[in-house]
Design a protein around this nucleic acid. Structure first.
Lengths: 226, 226
DNA sequence: GGAAGTATGTTGTTTTTCCAACGAAACGAG
DNA sequence: CTCGTTTCGTTGGAAAAACAACATACTTCC
C-alpha cells in the first residue's frame, strides 16, 4: 500500500498509536490490509462469516446487529469512522461471527488478516510488536469497562445500582465530590432503570442524607460510623 | 528455572496451551518468572500496587477483594489453582491495581513480568508468540463472556432477562431444546434476581406457552407469527 | 427403607419499580 | 423578551419483583 493511500484516520486510532505515520504503509503491507467500499444497506459482515479478519471503519456509518434464535433482531452498536469491529471474535478464535454488520450509509472499511496481526512478520518489525501491544490494550480496556458496568448492573434495586455507580465514580475521581458524564436519561439507560424512578430515588436518597447533588455534580456522604 | 521446578499445573493452563512441557522452563526463564509462598491471610496484591506483573495461583486458595470509596469491601472472585489474576490491569497499562488479592489459605503464586510477556525475547522463541496468542485468546474470551452477561443483565424485568438468556443458550446449542448449566438458585444469581420470583416467572411463562421445561432442560416455543 | 438435606414450586404480602402525565426550570434561537 | 425545546423532578396508579413462609418433590447417606 502506497503512502498516499493510507487513510488519515488510521493515524489517530489507538490501534496504531506509537507507530509513526511513515511506518504505516509497510505495516499495512505486512498485515495484508485490504480496503473495500460498501453501499448503504449492504453488509460488511454477515452472521456465519468466518472470523478471520479484523475490521476498521474508515468512513461512513455502519451498525452491528444480532439475531437471536427466535429471529428477533437487536441493535448492538453504531459504528463511526475509526471504530474497530469483529476483533474480539478473531482474537477468541471463534469460527463464525454470531452477528451482522450493515452499512447504514455508504462507507469504507479496512480489513486486516488476524493471522498476520499475530504472526510476527518475516522482517520482525518493531511496530508489529507495538500493534500487538495496542491490541492487548484495547481488549483489556474494554474488559475493564465491561467489568465496571457489570458490577453496577448486578445490583438489584435502583438505589443499589446508584450507590455502586456513584462510589465507583468517587473512587475514580479520588474525591467524594465529582461530576458524572451523563444526564439523567443517559444515567437511567446506563443503569437499565427508568428515568423518572431514578429521579425519585435520587431525591429520596438526598432527603435521607446519603448524598447531595446539583445537576451532574454529586457529593457522597461519609460512611456512617458503625 | 529447572525443568523439575516447573509446577505441573502450568501444563494444563490455557495460557500455556500449545507449548510443549519441555519448552516451559526456557519460556519461564524468558519471562523472568518468580515463585512466592504466602501464608493464610497475607496479601498477594494490595490495592495501589504497581500493575507490572501477571499472577498465576499455583496452589492453595485466594480471593479478590475490592474496597469502594466509602470503605465498603466486596468479594469479587475466589481463585483456585491455575487461575490467572491481575492480567487485565497489566495489559491495560493501568498504573495501580484497584483491588486486593488475599490468601484464604496458604498458597503459592507464580509472577510473570508483563513487559517480558510482551517484548519478544532476544531469542525470538516461537513459543513466546504462542504465549501472546494465548493471552489475547484469554482476554477476548473473557470479553465475550462479559458481553453475554451484560446483554442479559441490561434487561429490566425477570421475564426479559430469562428470554435473553434462554434464547442465547438456544442459539449456542443450535436448537430450541437445550440444557442450562445452572440450578434455579444459580440461575437467579446469574440474572441478579430472586429465586422464588424466578420460579414463579418460569411457570407463568410455561402456562402462557412461551416455553416448557423439566429441571435443567428447556424448550423455547417458536416465534409467534406476526 | 427411611431420615435428613436440598432443590423447586407456590402463595400471599410488602416493597420497589414502571409508566404516563404534568409542571418547573434551564437553555437557545429568533 | 418570547417561544419552543430539553431536562429534571414529582405524583398517583399499575405492574413487577422481592420477601417470607410453606408444600412437594428429589437426593443422599446411613
Amino acid at each position: 500500500m502506497d503512502n498516499r493511500d493510507v487513510p488519515n484516520i488510521l493515524h489517530t486510532m489507538p490501534l496504531f498509536s506509537g507507530i509513526a505515520p511513515s511506518e504505516l504503509p509497510a505495516l499495512l503491507g505486512c498485515l495484508a490490509a485490504t480496503q473495500r467500499t460498501y453501499r448503504k444497506g449492504s453488509y460488511l459482515l454477515r452472521e456465519g462469516d468466518a472470523a478471520t479478519h479484523v475490521g476498521i471503519l474508515l468512513s461512513g456509518a455502519a451498525q452491528i446487529e444480532q439475531t437471536d434464535y427466535l429471529g428477533y433482531r437487536s441493535l448492538l452498536a453504531q459504528l463511526t469512522p475509526g471504530d474497530l469491529f469483529a476483533e474480539t471474535f478473531a482474537c477468541a478464535h471463534v469460527a463464525h461471527i454470531p452477528l451482522s454488520v450493515q452499512a447504514t450509509a455508504g462507507c469504507e472499511a479496512l480489513w486486516l488478516d488476524y493471522s498476520h496481526v499475530l504472526g510476527s512478520c518475516a522482517k520482525a518489525c518493531a511496530f508489529h510488536q507495538r500493534l500487538i501491544d495496542n491490541m492487548l490494550l484495547a481488549l483489556s480496556r474494554k474488559n475493564l469497562f465491561l467489568n465496571a458496568k457489570l458490577t453496577v448492573l448486578s445490583r438489584r434495586t435502583t438505589r443499589e445500582k446508584l450507590l455502586a455507580y456513584l462510589s465507583a465514580e468517587a473512587k475514580r475521581a479520588g474525591s467524594l465530590t465529582f461530576e458524572i458524564p451523563f444526564n439523567r436519561q443517559e444515567l437511567a439507560d446506563y443503569l437499565s432503570a427508568d428515568r423518572s424512578a431514578l429521579s425519585t430515588e435520587l431525591s429520596r436518597m438526598q432527603s435521607e442524607g446519603l448524598l447531595t447533588y446539583q445537576k451532574n455534580q454529586f457529593t457522597l456522604a461519609q460512611k456512617p460510623v458503625q
